[in-house]
């Protein structure tokens, strides 16, 4: 029996849409010899931050986590976060085609599936962002270090804050807005504290993964290892699809609320954002190349 740990609530769509099919596929293809038991809601330990360590150390066999929370271990994986490297709808397939490039970052765990989130948008409490000028000096929550660089390039003051604190911080004016994906309008109830959403520029895109403890993986015979790997890839595609569906619906629901506005920048309006972000992307890629990560080649492989 493999234990799979996710810190999100038991009602999260992954439970039925990702993990159940994953468990079924593993069970069917191993003739019932390997079963998967899913622990949702942080039953095996709360919060996203320690998830990577839970996989490395073996609190659970398989863990859902965000590479961004342990960014120092995944500089190459996280390149897809930068504006312009992938697009949200095709990113997961492209990344899967180039997984071998990432093998150096997965020495402590086995990567089963890697997928990207819906694009990050600007969720603003009460100040609309229609141009880069509007963003000047505003305090915006950043999802990551690279996200912070992009925000700085856009003229904002990045604030780092756990995702769970965004609601209160936006409600009370501790921050003016947050750079985060649309699903959080629903899952973290951010729609209640957000008046304006801005999209249309090249977004930052966060990623998620399913990782497995090395020893748990080695304990399986080769044939079963292959089954789990294969099921992980399917899970990544399912999860990516769910993520985009939930985001689309959450954004549509938000736009339908009275007094709320979704601002979609025109190509002209987006151009300054994209120009500023492109410099950051290039800088990060150059730095990664210097650190010996062969970043340029990887990013090139991801381009359509």
């Amino acid at each position: 029996e493999l234990k799979l740990a996710d810190f999100q609530p038991a009602t999260h769509p992954y439970a039925a849409g990702v993990y159940a099919p994953f468990a079924d596929e593993v069970k069917a293809k191993t003739d019932g010899e390997v079963t998967v038991r899913v622990f949702m809601g942080g039953e095996l330990g709360t919060g996203p931050v320690e998830q990577f360590n839970r996989a490395v150390n073996g609190v659970a066999d398989i863990v859902f986590a965000l590479p961004g929370y342990t960014a120092s271990s995944f500089p190459k994986t996280l390149l897809t976060e930068l504006p312009g490297v992938i697009s949200a709808d095709t990113g997961t397939e492209r990344v899967q085609a180039s997984l071998a490039d990432l093998s150096k970052e997965y020495r402590r765990v086995v990567l089963l599936g890697l997928w990207n989130n819906a694009p990050n948008l600007l969720l603003m409490a009460d100040k609309p962002v229609r141009s880069m000028q509007d963003l000047k000096g505003l305090k915006i929550r950043t999802p990551s270090r690279n996200g912070g660089r992009v925000l700085e390039a856009w003229g904002a003051a990045p604030v780092s804050l756990p995702a769970t604190d965004i609601y209160n911080a936006m409600q009370t004016g501790v921050i003016d807005g947050a750079m985060i994906d649309a699903t959080t309008l629903q899952t973290f109830k951010l729609a209640e504290v957000t008046k304006y959403v801005t999209q249309g520029m090249q977004p930052t895109i966060s990623s998620f993964f399913l990782i497995m403890n090395r020893d748990s993986f080695k304990d399986l015979p080769d044939s079963q290892q292959a089954v789990v790997q294969e099921a992980g890839k399917t899970a990544a595609l399912n999860a990516n699809r769910i993520q985009l569906e939930v985001a689309d619906k959450a954004l549509a629901d938000f736009a339908a609320l009275p007094g709320k506005e979704v601002i979609t920048l025109s190509a002209d309006e987006a151009a300054p954002f994209d120009a500023a972000a492109a410099k950051v992307t290039q800088q990060v890629i150059d730095d990664a190349d210097k650190a010996g990560l062969e970043a340029s080649a990887y990013v090139k492989a991801l381009q359509p």
């Binding site: 120092s72 270090r145 780092s160």
Partner: peptide, 17 residues
Amino acid sequence: LQALDAAEFGDATNMLA
């Protein structure tokens, strides 16, 4: 063991490293 592991793999915080 965790300290050794963290030293070997250069584990560091996200923003300030």
